[in-house]
Amino acid sequence: MNSRRAVGSLFASPWILTFLIFWLFPLLYSLYLGFTDYRLLRPSFHWVGFQNFAALFSDSAFTEALKNTFYFVLGTIPVTTIVALLVALLVEKQFAGRTIFRSGYFMPSITSMVVIALIFTNLYSRGGYIHILAQILGLGPPENGFLLSNKTALMAIMAMDIWMSVGYYMLLFLAGLKSIPEELYEAAVVAGAGRTRQFFSITLPLLKPVALFIVVINTIKSFQIFTEIFVMTGGKSGTSTAVYFIYETGLSRFEFGYASAAAYILFLIIAVFSLAQFGLFQQRSLQ
């Protein structure tokens, strides 16, 4: 028995070692660094207690980045989730070319984020197709393109993110829809329930676990928005987000202590949001 356990441990050890060295140690070490004034190139560093955390909340760059992140999260998650659900309901039905539509919606999810961001940068620029279309429709787009205006840059990135994410969440909703037993709808029809009633009384309640999963992972992903900002605006035009701030502070200025503190604040925010979402969904399920 002992030798079986030893063999098992031996097989698991590569993963355990990787986890300990590359996950757990950096995680705990960065927490420690958050309480120090550690900067790369400096020969020594000191324990500063909560000084970094206090400084962050009076740092306008961080609070602005945090505000933008919340704006991004709250602006994209409901829209992405609702649109993904609607698209899933549409492409679930049998019709000619259904596979083409499904593939089409899913395609952006498997395309490189950087490629998409570069394409949209051109589309949003002055003379880009989206800019021209907005002019034709009389929407009064910013003269110098969407990404160079503080009023539209973040919204433009949010719109792109929704377009890009819908396909993936549509697929998850489709899987959820497939798992709903057909008999429930048949029974509802016999009981005289219309399509709207069926949707609100059968489809939505039974999709709740999938919806929870989608909302939680989308929340985590949205709080971590970085690549789009890095490629499209470099954090300018009022688009700096929390992770972009951490990147700038940690990997551009090498203020590891300050950046670690910011990362842990973001971690706490994500944890609180995720727990609240779990709680909310569980409460609704009980009701």
């Binding site: 110098n144 160079l148 470099g234 954090g235 300018k236 035009s237």
Partner: peptide
């Protein structure tokens, strides 16, 4: 008339 830079890092 003039080329003025946007908010470019």
């Amino acid at each position: 008339g003039f080329g003025s830079n946007a908010a470019e890092k």
